[in-house]
């Protein structure tokens, strides 16, 4: 059970980070079509939900881990903060795909939100690896 949960948790994390790398590519000048932007949002949705569900399941499954451990609470807070920044980013960019919208300008305007999310994701990965106060 542990192996399967860890595989699904990590696979979901790869989907989530793939979305972030795509958004970062868009921020750095790769102007997306609506299709490629939608692909990134789907990866983010599936990855975000998968990391949360399988992550909590893992925390309950592994002896020695608990949902009230500092590093798990920190991970949940970082996950929620990154998700919040992601939601704002998508909300700022998606309307630009409507006729007359300027996608490149919307991406530049939302760039700070992307970099905030990237920083939170790196912190989240560090938290997963070092597990402070575990």
């Amino acid at each position: 059970m542990y192996d399967a949960l860890l595989f699904l948790h990590v696979l979901a994390a790869f989907a989530l980070i793939a979305a972030m790398v795509m958004y970062t590519g868009f921020t750095l000048g790769a102007t997306p079509s609506q299709g490629s932007f939608t692909l990134a949002t789907r990866l983010e949705d599936v990855g975000g939900l998968g990391t949360l569900i399988f992550g909590i399941w893992l925390a309950l499954d592994v002896d020695g881990y608990g949902l009230l451990d500092f590093w798990i609470i920190a991970a949940l807070v970082l996950w929620a903060a990154a998700g919040g920044a992601g939601g704002q980013y998508r909300g700022a960019v998606f309307p630009a795909f409507e006729p007359g919208g300027n996608v490149a300008a919307a991406l530049q305007k939302a760039a700070v939100l992307n970099w905030v999310r990237v920083a939170l994701a790196i912190l989240l990965l560090a938290d997963m690896i070092w597990k402070p106060w575990a």
């Binding site: 980070i17 793939a18 979305a19 972030m20 795509m22 079509s33 299709g35």
Partner: peptide, 28 residues
């Protein structure tokens, strides 16, 4: 093991994410 594991996973994240980004543009 923590630092090399962190770098290993971070590098893999960037590699896979960039490959997905490339695929999203190579198909069109």
């Amino acid at each position: 093991w923590d630092l090399p594991l962190f770098l290993h996973v971070l590098g893999a994240f960037v590699m896979v994410g960039a490959a997905v980004l490339a695929a999203a543009f190579l198909v069109p």
